[in-house]
Amino acid sequence: MIEFRNASKIFKSEDRTIEALKNINLTIEKGDIFGVIGFSGAGKSTLIRMVNLLEKPTSGQVLVDGQDLSKLSEKELRQAKKNIGMIFQHFNLLRSKTVFDNVAMPLKLSKTPKSVIEERVHELLHFVGLSDKANSYPDQLSGGQKQRVGIARALATNPSILLCDEPTSALDPQTTTSILQLLKRVNQEYNVTILMITHEMEVIKQICNRVAVMQNGEIIEEGTILDIFSKPKTETARNFVRSVLRDEIPQSIFHILQANDKFSKIYNIEFIGESSGKPILSQVAKSFAVDVNILFGSINELQGVPFGNLIVELQGEEAEIARAYDFIVQQNVLVNEVIRNGG
């Protein structure tokens, strides 16, 4: 478990002070894959670096399993760090050492016996799917393979927490997915709590169960991924959600609608969980004197829960459309009228 309690960070240089983090309060529970998303400069890296004390909080506390690392002696801190693995955007592997020696490094630092190192490294390389690369050098690997080495290295000392600072930002979408799947296995098979920084909502969507949105050194929104995706409260969160879930009518459909002179209204209906299984639209068409025209739809899965939206046009008498609308609202789905701009 990781807890931020009123944690702040101020960077001072000769000519200016930057308040990188302002009063952060956040709890990451054991077993979470917790995502933190925000634009460049929001303070995400500073936040994650406070967990293993690469950055000391200016005020407030960061507790890891109830322990305030800044209160530990140098020696105790080094011990505590073995419980916290970290991977990086640019992998930070040693170019002068083989894959095997890179993964073995954390164990060598703590003077682990050679035979134990040998066994552990091979087990980890097998886990990340790089058994055949033990004697290669980082320069001979692809970006995805390098990150796998990074993950194996971070797991070497059997940590219970893994910090990931933009682990997929240097990778293409396909490799990103494979690395995220690997991180999910790390979470499930090794029971590792993951704190992950990213600026891509797609990454959050693929593996996180909770997410915090950061802006200007503050957490402006936090919740389960379903909460944030279905009911984003801030404009920033809405924009991030929109980057993966489209809920705007494509331009081409707008043009067709503008050519249409029948009376109609357009609604965006969002489905979450079981409501996505209900035949709401066919009931509307049967029970009311309206025609249902589906303009756009998407369905996604978040944390194993189906989640999606439909944009529909209801054609008919105005009063009848209003009655149909009331019916839809009663079905426990979110529905908003879409204003036809420029129409």
């Binding site: 690469l54 011990q79 760090k81 954390p106």
Partner: peptide, 11 residues
């Protein structure tokens, strides 16, 4: 980044 990764390992 190399130094950072070393520090994260508790070197």
């Amino acid at each position: 980044g190399i130094i950072e990764s070393a520090q994260a390992m508790g070197a």
